[in-house]
Design a protein around this nucleic acid. Sequence first.
DNA 1: TGTATTTAGTACATAAATGTACAATCAATT
DNA 2: AATTGATTGTACATTTATGTACTAAATACA
Lengths: 164, 164
Amino acid sequence: MSSFLPTEQRLAITCRQYPAFPRDPAVLVRLVKHIYKRVHDDANAMLKPWGINHPEYNILMMLYGTEGYTLNPSQLADAAGEKSANITRLTNELCDKRLIERTASDEDRRKVTLTLTAEGLAMIEGFLPDVCALLERQAGGLQPREAAQLEKLLKKFLDHLDQA
Amino acid sequence: MSSFLPTEQRLAITCRQYPAFPRDPAVLVRLVKHIYKRVHDDANAMLKPWGINHPEYNILMMLYGTEGYTLNPSQLADAAGEKSANITRLTNELCDKRLIERTASDEDRRKVTLTLTAEGLAMIEGFLPDVCALLERQAGGLQPREAAQLEKLLKKFLDHLDQA
DNA sequence: TGTATTTAGTACATAAATGTACAATCAATT
DNA sequence: AATTGATTGTACATTTATGTACTAAATACA
């Protein structure tokens, strides 16, 4: 039995009581929430031995995925999908752990430069095998064509959210 | 330009640096995160005038979608996708606001019964028009067939997460 | 019956995330 | 140059979420 059934059934009853209720959008939004929570929890559990959590992992990986391993806080906020105030806190923690470094930018002195340290890079390469295994397990229920189709639809969904 | 582009580009670079990195699963997970955050923020903004937030709304709606407007905390945790400790806090708040009521169950005295009050029901029917409008706007970028397809794929994704 | 195990819910301490106000700097205009 | 308005980032208070340990009650079973 799917863990989503209790939710879905209650949305069905809601529609009966309030016929204008848009069932499909509501189901989609709830599904996204359930999936996100699950993925988030799994990632946190997997990363725990490495002493970091899911948002910190996301930040490290966005730096890893940038030439020079360097980004500003605001770029990081965009890429990692975090609010800027949260980036400050998260990058502070990562600095404390010596995984990234914060230096002042001299081109624009308002800006700050966050760079992966050698230590941070080593940790990433340490946990990447586990991360890959987890990601493959998580998406393992989908055929490649289904994954591609899902990606396309999610992007369309997000693009429209961005406009509205 | 999609708000997802910065993320996607960095995942592409990650794949170049670390070829075993499973690009598609990673993209899907990030998309889900971005969408969830966006939907969550929008809902919070819309609900603010009503004096409740998104998780509180979810709880109210799960009660509204149940015969008798009544659930136990653990059922609520399943349906709303929240951890049980969080349900305690959220339902406390809703009790304080007189939107739900907490009573002891007599069939099983470990259990607690949470029921929508008349006031809670009235509030739900007050904000439902706004909620419907928001949901329709959020999913408005998808054709009905696309929404159905997306639902199917997300369910498959979640089902597999539940197993693994 | 008595004892062990499981289940339901919560309290409390801690962690994580957000809103808001602010300081510093840059850019544009006068 | 001086002023105005926007941008970048952070500090701090508050809100929101989680882990863990615990109580009470139900269930299993010797």
